[in-house]
Design a binder for these strands. Structure first.
Lengths: 262, 262
DNA sequence: ACGCTGATGCGTACACCGTTCGCAACCCAT
DNA sequence: ATGGGTTGCGAACGGTGTACGCATCAGCGT
């Protein structure tokens, strides 16, 4: 009777059954998929190999049969997510509509980055030296678009575009992560943080104005007003910069006259 | 003779001396300063509270007397580094030269971000919701510049600018971190990575061209050629996008005709 | 001169992390 | 039946951030 510990260390007949017929078992695909789910749900720092394994009804170290390291797992997750990004085909808009196509690709990038707020963190730390198939395909389709558009230095234009999109998206993603962690609504959190922000800005004359605007938009102190729409404001902010960027790039096209200002 | 372990657990007269007259002791300032040194030298993941304490000849947990948490320490480090960024005063260039002033500010931001490659990682994870005095001052000076320039929506323009600069800088910083970790020169690492990159791009017709260019610039496979200048190329890439961005923003100025294309 | 009080340093400990190693169980071809 | 390759995993190692409580000390009111 003294031979039972907490697990079943007895290698008897009864313990050696349930290995099979459970699930298809582990696989790199399943691991990456579940990792993305966890990352989306609880953020980048909530993902640990142990917790991930537990979710898959597996032992912690079993994952290492299918994934060399946690960094590699993140690499796979990043590439997987890049598969969600849409770039309109280069020939859909014959040479003139590169602008709307580029805008669509940028919006898709942003949407993906906001759907997976950990993406920006990972890319910010590791850069885009990943070479995964989906990332390569994404780059390739973007290159097709800018080449077809007639840019003399397509890579320059592309790098410029994604620098802007990445910068804006990562700022937004960080903010959304903060919002998610706070448990409040976006408008609510803004309202709650407003006093501190205004006080911090008080000593800087050129900032008070800017803060005062949104403070007014929020409504009275602390009350998350009805008509206040942070999502729409972020959308507008994104397209403002995007359009500016595209205007600037359009000037680099050989046949370019000045772009329409309105 | 059985009473000596590894440390000196004997509370005798001899052990209670050397506390004083050592250094000025710990201080938040000294901690932050040393943390930045370590971050610059060994990257973000090499910084641990224990190692940092060891550098300061202090016990690991002593740091917590001056810093609430590691996150707060990073916050302080970020703000400290923001103090290095230069923004030309708004009135130095009377209203017309906002462009060169903005470019100078952008370059200063980039230079700082490349001097402290961990900055982008931290900002990418936490956003710029920091409210530290140096960051506020930086924002304020930038706001002054764009307000003076006459932008109808200065915050929009500013957000656009720093989105681009952050995106480009963080990509560069990540790359430089990779270079530093590899122990090779930048050109050497490019040369070594070229074959893999080209192979990965082989299946994507629009990328082969782009890679072929730099492969040619590098010279023969594997040899880090003489005239190859990665630093200069990065500089050029940065100003290409920056100028495009500023062109696009210039169009948003009320009095704007089309900006000079050359 | 004394004792008190608050600030400061730090040893210990806890819970968790990524990863290595070696063993047990299994699948499948022989 | 057997043997080899693949897969899962328990235990363990060295590391992490941080809470707790004790020791020491500086400065002060008496």
């Amino acid at each position: 009777m003294a031979a039972d510990k907490k697990p079943q260390p007895i290698p008897s007949v009864w313990t050696r059954r349930p290995r099979t017929a459970e699930q298809p078992g582990l696989s790199q695909e399943a691991i990456v998929r579940e990792a993305i789910v966890m990352l989306d749900a609880d953020g980048i720092e909530a993902l640990s190999m142990r917790k991930l394994a537990a979710r898959l009804n597996a032992g912690a170290t079993s994952l290492y049969r299918h994934v060399a390291t946690k960094d590699e797992l993140m690499e796979l997750a990043v590439d997987e997510v890049f598969g969600e990004m849409v770039v309109p085909p280069a020939d859909s808009a014959d040479s003139a509509d590169w602008r709307t196509a580029a805008a669509r690709a940028a919006a898709s990038f942003r949407a993906t980055a906001l759907r997976h707020p950990w993406l920006s963190s990972v890319l910010g730390q590791a850069g885009l030296a990943y070479l995964g198939p989906n990332l390569m395909s994404f780059s390739n389709r973007l290159a097709a678009l800018f080449i077809k558009a007639g840019f003399p230095e397509p890579t320059r234009a592309i790098d410029t575009l994604i620098a802007y999109v990445m910068g804006m998206s990562s700022a937004e993603a960080a903010w959304l992560t903060t919002v998610a962690r706070s448990g409040e609504t976006e408008a609510g959190l803004i309202a709650r943080l407003m006093p501190d922000a205004q006080q911090a800005a008080a000593a800087h004359d050129n900032l008070t104005e800017a803060y005062a605007e949104t403070a007014e938009a929020v409504g009275a102190v602390g009350a998350a007003a009805e008509g206040f729409d942070p999502v729409g404001m972020r959308d507008e902010k994104f397209v403002y910069g995007l359009e500016a960027m595209l205007d600037g790039l359009a000037l680099r096209l050989p046949a370019a006259g000045p772009p329409p200002v309105e």
